[in-house]
Design a protein around this nucleic acid. Structure first.
Lengths: 367, 367
DNA sequence: TTGTAAGCGTTATCAG
DNA sequence: CTGATAACGCTTACAA
């Protein structure tokens, strides 16, 4: 796989990585280090001594500058620069019980939708001075529980999930945390706290309607067996029934592993001789796999087979003939979630704790 | 964008999200909550009182069970369960100076390569009982500096970056942290501490060789202006020169925004009448855009135009005619980086601090 | 094997 | 506006 490298190894093409020299005046952070190795980090007390004020005044000067006289504020400022002082968040949190860390957990890091949402959310919090950190739960109850245990310990300022928490035990732990909690990506009746979501059931219904409108009557469903996939399937089934469409085949997977899985699903369907005129994939990755496979098999799209996806994959719009999908504005969801949490953290009276995102049909010709 | 929703709103299709009831016996976490709202979290002292031992014995029973008598260990165990006690990591870190948090920063969350690496790395640390959290730096020095300031404050057990730190000031801060630091995705001569990387310069050279071997002589380069893109370009230029190939055109972008950017780059090249027989894109997203655009324009691949990408995009392998790329085993890199850091954290004497990943040519027919 | 004492660096509280 | 004092909950060092 790789090979060990010793500095000075011959025969390697090293990268001449750019180095950008330090522009700061001497006496900055370096002042914290004596000649004999990294020194102890400066504490509030050190700064206080240097500025000739009390520690608590330093604390105030940094957190509520308005409540400290200009003179002392400046002295503190200077002392902070000289010592390279940085607050110790652990001590701060230990005492105050408050932190400026916001944690977000995604079921899956590889998902474009989740990445878009988290990126937008990160933007909101980082702009507001919070440290936005992310973790993953891998669609696993076990991991999710571990993450929530960690939360219970870390007491972040707020938490967000790209999904809804299903285990009662975990819901209980979260409630007990007593911090703003954001669930997303579904529309349950009883969110733990806050929610920016959309109805997956409705998405499934909408999928049926879109296919029906284009004349498809015998359809297949490909998607995840559990979680939101199951919700979309439920809505899809219901509306198909109402519209007199037949779901000829349902291919359920436990975990979405990649495009090739979508290929395999479609080719299995074809090999089985299922007579379908369209397929709804509850996930863009699967839909793209189907699209590829259909083209490889020479099946004309949407003439012989309509393909409908779900999500917000960048490539869905670009790949010919264009993948028609249902989805939401993921970045918008992330931004909204961030702003709602932020409002709560700022102490604003927030009445609206639940927001519903509109479902968007992006018609690109594959249906 | 969205619409406000009040519980009980009519007309909405709510999701019947699965709820999995709590299987634990009563008296678990709930015991921590009295009738009057969430009670104070149990502390070590509470547990000690209940178990009738000293606080330090509780601490030991939890961290080094072997050093406590079986009797007391059991009493502690029971008391922990009864109170729902969970360690307060802030107090723990404040005193010990050690944390079990590992932080990883990616330049860009949307990158499949980085996601793969982080996911693999997360696996390693989570299995070992660490809390693995991720942040993003958005390819911005400013964000990177902010992240590193946060690090300086948080003192995680270890840190990893999907890249190499360029700002001297930041390198200095990291060194002063005195924790294991992992840089990746390049092969500088002077990493801060540990490194699992590969030579981007060599990747550029290899790209030239791959194109040359297939008979291409007049080529274009499309990629990021800065960072690793620049390194790849440097190697590409050098080897092209040596092999007598001409780089007819270099299209440099500041930031990769999506497939459509690749499309635009190729169509600009074509519109300008540049006579090229191949293009090397230092990024799969751009390469896929080129591939799409070439097909749209009716340019045969690789007959009239060879396209070579860089990265590990899932779709590159699936999209006809298959995108030939150069890349590394991203998940392998992440795993390796995680394991090397873990070895250091376990106190093992680690001699090899630098590991070089092999470059892989994945020939899929687009060159 | 167990416990005592002290303190990590910060902030809440209250007094001046 | 400023400061003294006492914690926050845990772990290190040392003593028994």
């Amino acid at each position: 796989m790789g090979s060990d490298t010793e500095p000075g190894d011959a025969g390697f093409v090293y990268d001449d990585v750019v180095r950008i020299p330090d522009a700061r005046a001497p006496g900055g952070l370096d002042a914290a280090e004596g000649a004999d190795g990294p020194a102890r980090r400066a504490s509030l007390a050190d700064v206080a001594r240097l500025a000739d004020v009390s520690p608590i005044t330093v604390s105030r000067a940094l957190r509520q500058p308005g409540r400290v006289s200009a003179d002392k504020r400046q002295r503190v400022q200077r002392a902070v620069e000289q010592t390279g002082y940085r607050i110790n968040p652990y001590a701060s949190i230990l005492k105050s019980g408050r932190s400026n860390i916001v944690l977000a957990f995604a079921s899956n890091l590889m998902s474009e939708q989740f990445s878009l949402a988290l990126q937008a959310c990160a933007e909101v919090f980082e702009t507001a001075g919070y440290l936005f950190l992310m973790g993953q739960t891998s669609y696993s109850y076990e991991r999710e529980t571990a993450a929530i245990q960690a939360l219970h310990a870390m007491k972040p300022a707020a938490v967000m999930f790209t999904g809804v928490i299903e285990l009662e035990a975990n819901r209980e732990v979260l409630r007990a945390l007593d911090i703003p909690i954001m669930e997303t990506w579904a529309l349950p009746r009883d969110p733990i706290d806050m929610l920016v979501g959309f109805s997956n059931t409705e998405a499934g219904q909408l999928a049926a309607e879109v296919l029906f409108a284009k004349g498809h009557r015998r359809v297949a469903y490909i998607g995840r067996r559990g979680g939101r996939g199951a919700l979309r399937l439920q809505g899809f089934r219901r509306r198909c029934g109402e519209l007199g469409m037949e779901i000829v085949r349902e291919l359920l997977v436990d975990e979405v592993t990649g495009l090739s899985q979508g290929r395999a699903c479609l080719s299995a369907t074809v090999a089985a001789g299922a007579e379908i005129d369209a397929v709804f994939c509850s996930n863009d990755v699967l839909a793209l796999g189907c699209l590829m496979e259909a083209r490889r098999l020479g099946i004309s799209i949407p003439g012989s087979l309509g393909i409908l996806g779900f999500g917000e994959s960048d490539i869905a719009a670009e790949i010919p003939p264009g993948l028609t999908t249902i989805g939401i504005d993921s970045a918008g969801l992330g931004r909204e979630a961030g702003e709602m949490l932020l409002a709560r953290l700022s102490g604003e009276a927030v009445e609206v704790k639940v927001r519903r995102m509109d479902l968007l049909v992006r018609d690109r010709g594959s249906v």
